[in-house]
Amino acid sequence: MPFADTSPHEDYTAAVERVAGRALGVLMDVEGTVVPAGFAPADPRLADPHDPDADLPGLRVLGSDAFAPHVLRGTPLPADQAEAAARAFSLFPPDTLGASPETAWIITWRDWATARTLTRFGLALDVPLPGDGAQVADATTWQAWSVRMAQLSSLALPGLDGPIHAAARRNADSLARGVVRAMLRRDYRTAARIARWLALLAADGVDSPLELDPLLRHVRLFGGGSTRTVLDTRIAQHVTGLEES
């Protein structure tokens, strides 16, 4: 059935949620069969089973987050998903993602993280080399800086390291402040993204002034049901090795 009721933007959002739901399933259960109730793709009609490319925007947007569960659980990436990832990148090159000149460097870093992650599964992606990360040091306040780090949250995975990670390690308090600011502004997506950096720092033994476990649980209960946000909280939880709840 055609879904004339949905706009391209809705299809796009649905694809992101669908891919996030699948990644969440991988993370929560090694067989990929368990997605928590309420976090499954909202409307199956939005996924056209006859269109193999329907998920590609979601794969492109989520980038390394779509594959992070396989990295974290040590499970192989199915061949069709690796191929889909490569297709998503060729279909949506960086200059089609709507970045402004001020934010293009963020896309470059995210693509770098995706390429590095896919390398672990034997897939080579041709992406531009990121710069020296100087832009992340340019932010004048902890508020603006922490929001940038939220936009770079897909880099916050074990095994990835670089100048962005070094900046995170130097500014644990600014990350923590950014999380709390986002929580109080009820911007749970941003909170979960910044929390991923704190989770990575915690795994590296860097002290954080925040207790992450209750915070991540709070985001899941109050965060409005975005599968993508739940995925961020679960990745963070997995990275720190916290008990799942």
Binding site: A176, R177, V180, R181, L184, P209
Partner: peptide
């Protein structure tokens, strides 16, 4: 020590 970290956040959100 607690206020040193969190006071600026509360100023920020209630100023907003």
């Amino acid at each position: 020590d607690y206020l040193r970290v969190w006071l600026p956040v509360w100023v920020d959100v209630w100023a907003e």
